[in-house]
Design a protein around this nucleic acid. Sequence first.
DNA 1: GAATGCAATTCGATAATGTCGAATATCCCT
DNA 2: AGGGATATTCGACATTATCGAATTGCATTC
Lengths: 270, 270
Amino acid sequence: MIQAIDRAAKVLSSLQGARHLGITELSAELGLPASTVHGIVKSLQGHGLVAQEPGGNRYMLGPALLKLSNVYLDTLDVRARAMRWTLELARRTGLSTRLGVQLFDEVIIIHHNQRPDGSQQMPETGLSVPAHASAMGKVLLAYNPEYATGLLGRSLRTLTGATITDPTQLAIQFASIADFGIATEEDEAVLGESSVAAPVVDTRGNVIAAVAVVIPSSQWPPEPDVLNSLRETARNISRELGASTWPPRAPQPTVLVHPKSPEPLTRPET
Amino acid sequence: MIQAIDRAAKVLSSLQGARHLGITELSAELGLPASTVHGIVKSLQGHGLVAQEPGGNRYMLGPALLKLSNVYLDTLDVRARAMRWTLELARRTGLSTRLGVQLFDEVIIIHHNQRPDGSQQMPETGLSVPAHASAMGKVLLAYNPEYATGLLGRSLRTLTGATITDPTQLAIQFASIADFGIATEEDEAVLGESSVAAPVVDTRGNVIAAVAVVIPSSQWPPEPDVLNSLRETARNISRELGASTWPPRAPQPTVLVHPKSPEPLTRPET
DNA sequence: GAATGCAATTCGATAATGTCGAATATCCCT
DNA sequence: AGGGATATTCGACATTATCGAATTGCATTC
């Protein structure tokens, strides 16, 4: 990892968290001398990745990021293919749908279809949710056991009273998700909002995204119809991407690194 | 400018242009050894700014950009303030409206209101247009003469038959924009589409954004009503940002560096 | 199914490069 | 107008990124 680039990325990350920061604040946050941070920030600014706050001495994220992210979305094959299917899913279920990809310990929503009831809803594309507290995240983790193992080692953030942070409990969920190809989440990220998600697979069988249906918790649990439509949507998208089988083959089970129980948790063989 | 960061930004920029590139292709494009490029790309990948194409050996932009850009939009004070006014402008005129900021020689659309006729239209937020071929860009350049001078020195891209690329002609337009606070563009970026734009000013009198109304070229020229509404919108947004006067004070006129005429072009004193 | 060629990746020596701390400039607040 | 804080500039130093050669991995061909 190239030091200067690593630091530059950390600067972007800090600005992402704090919105507006001066050089001194940044240097405190990164534990680096002010002059070093200054050089980094100016370099980023030279490419529009960071911008001077109008009014002088503080910095914020820059407009180049918007352009890059727009191209990123255009680049994503999954997204282009999935859109028509998630729209159909939203129509069928009367619910809002999401398509998400993994970004480390989070899920980034790369496409969002509003509930077709005509009400005004906030666009969710670009939002991120902690992976362990979302149905999409659980799907992605269940099929990415290598990463999941690491994640379960760290301590997880609580978002609502219902957020599951116990590694053992999550590992059990992951195992059953890998078996059934469906993940659920009840009020774990946002109170009053639950969701169900399914994996999207590419040609070589990798899970590269997740589709989800968002269900008001008052309507929980979802109708079997909803689950079937979701499954079918995930299968259709995957097929369009060239996947031969769906649901994807179950991965090696997630292993807890520091299990409280002596035996590492494994998925029962079928 | 820190070399490694500069190169990293150039990698992002290349991927922005080409969507998918291998290490070799990138190294050819940047004129650097493959191993150097590899290090840069891996560093970016470590932060999610670049992602491996599903299927192996090529790289594309990464999901972290989407998250960053979302925060960027949230961070922008202008945008939050302007939204309700541009919506009103769209309602009043029956036309689609845009809010844009400058990114070097382009304008990035940071907010877009669709034409209120109920037809399905593509969301334009995040799109970029060459500054010299758009009304918003002309506004931003007219009030940023330092940058404009440099830009007019380079050769400008033609987008449609109507794109104005002659520096002298553009410099004349900039002068009159600075006087009237309104810029226009007729089919210069997209055939059939014309637009009018006005500057948005902050507390200290800097032009930080531009508002525009997009007009089908078949309806050109715009009604006086449209121009008035646009002006009023720009003034309202500016006032909300703390600007005391609108239109902003005219800047030092844009000077041509290599003028064909012996005298540099100046705006007639009023 | 083996062999060939291309591209990605790893590795280590080199010196070019970014880093750091001190000095200076700029801004804002009293 | 003065003082404090913050951003910015500068130059010596040693850490750090860079580069080319060697290796691995993949895909395509025969």
